[in-house]
């Protein structure tokens, strides 16, 4: 197999900050990204911003996906972005999935979130966007 010529897989961290208790959506996205050939580090539920930023750094990921349903997005996501900048991870693109009102979405984009997916987003859409954000748009 001429494995040497192949591009290495995209590495993506999927994490769920905040306190809401189920991660079905995050798991479905994780599997879709895996099926698109990515290495998905799945960090699980109830991650603190500090732990998420730490995991992104240690795992040297190309992108970070945050799933958040608790409504605490305006408290948690700016905190994560700020910590990432402080930890010299500011250039890692961040995307967010969850129920986020338009006004908040605008604000989050201004703060640096690269893409936001509501409950209606298709998996293809998310995969395509993740590839694009990792600089591997086909």
């Amino acid at each position: 197999m001429p494995a040497a010529k192949k591009q290495p897989p995209i590495r993506v961290l999927i994490a769920k900050p905040g306190l809401d208790g189920h991660d079905r959506g995050a798991k479905v996205v994780a599997r879709a990204l895996r099926d698109a050939g990515m290495e998905v580090i799945y960090a699980g539920l109830r991650q603190t911003p500090e732990a998420i930023v730490q995991a992104a750094m240690e795992e040297d990921v190309d992108i970070v996906g945050l799933s958040i349903l608790s409504g605490a997005h305006m408290a948690l996501i700016p905190k994560i972005l700020e910590l990432m900048r402080k930890e010299r991870s500011g250039r890692i693109p961040v995307f967010v999935g969850g129920i986020i009102p338009d006004e908040d979405a605008r604000q989050l984009r201004k703060l640096g979130v690269k893409a936001i997916f509501g409950p209606g987003a298709s998996l293809q859409e998310i995969v395509k966007s993740a590839k694009h954000l990792a600089g591997r748009a086909s």
Binding site: P9, R34, E39, V40, A43
Partner: peptide, 13 residues
Amino acid sequence: SPFSGGSVLGDRI
């Protein structure tokens, strides 16, 4: 995955 080459790495949980 032998099919996609992708993987879900879940030990960090």
